[in-house]
Design a protein around this nucleic acid. Structure first.
Lengths: 156, 156
DNA sequence: CACTTGTCTTGAGTAATTCAAAACACCGGC
DNA sequence: GCCGGTGTTTTGAATTACTCAAGACAAGTG
């Protein structure tokens, strides 16, 4: 597997270094991870690595097209290996968790807005906002607790 | 017109204050402006206003549903008055300019992704990326200049 | 194996935003 | 029209995510 990651880097025309392999390995285990998360993961294997190195690696891999950088509102930047296909993201409004979503329409329709105010459209990006399964459960049990309190209060 | 803005605030259940009126007035003149731009505009009319007051006003108005906050990747947060309708944005990849775009599909289709990984979808947000008219022109004249240089070099 | 080029470490700096506490102002009631 | 409570604004500081720069170091070419 290390050899595979090695190949990924070479094919992108990049030098193969330990921090780069570590970042790639970390991202396999944690898709949509942020720089800080990856830094934590990389440190476990390569304790000497600096945060700036991680930023450098992420920048280089993103420029080379190996990684895609996504930046949901209110959340630090996240990175993913899936590049070159048309997929979008759903972000949890409560905890910020991210999951992949394939576009319902394939890709064409969303790339053709009606009026562009003179802009040339290069790409379209869709972000869905909602609740992840975990936060749905948390919201439900919280609602249950609240209504229990309400019952108690209104019965006095 | 000041009375109109006044009414906007009262109807949202908010106290009417000079900074709030000034921010609302500024946003009428500059839709999609960021906190810093608005701070600059507000200062012209209300020199004593602090940047934190502007952040406070923007936060309060956003929570009250009077403003919408948009946060394109790589750009500070921007605010707009158009709320409650289904429209999206196109952002210039070069200068960050933002324009409104009405969704081709109305609103329904983009709200129904095929597989949501267990997430509950609350809303969908589409960001188009492209070049604004100004940057298209700049890119063209730069390309022309580059090819002129190329001509000169290749003719030697 | 040496050399070149690009990468990583170390250290500092920046932009956008948030937090906290005290002074102040809006506005409903008197 | 004035007063008081509540919410807003000011002042000042802190935080987060990220970028910049310079020198030490390592990957890969020949």
């Amino acid at each position: 597997m290390i050899t595979q990651l090695h190949a990924v880097l070479r094919e992108a025309g990049l030098k193969v270094t330990a921090p780069r392999l570590a970042v790639l390995a970390a991202i396999e285990n944690a898709p949509h991870a942020g720089a800080d998360d990856l830094f934590g993961a990389v440190r476990l294997e390569l304790p000497g690595t600096s945060l700036q190195a991680v930023y450098g690696v992420l920048g280089a891999l993103t420029t080379a097209g190996v990684l895609r950088r996504i930046e949901p509102a209110g959340s630090p930047a996240r990175y993913e290996r899936r590049v070159g296909d048309n997929h979008h993201h759903i972000v949890c409004t409560t905890c910020g968790a991210v999951a992949d979503v394939d576009c319902v329409h394939g890709d064409a329709p969303c790339l053709a807005p009606s009026a562009t105010n003179g802009f040339t459209v290069q790409s379209a990006e869709i972000t869905f906002w909602g609740l992840c399964p975990k936060c749905q459960a948390a919201a439900q049990s919280e609602a249950a607790a609240a209504s229990a309190v309400h019952d108690r209060l209104s019965s006095t």
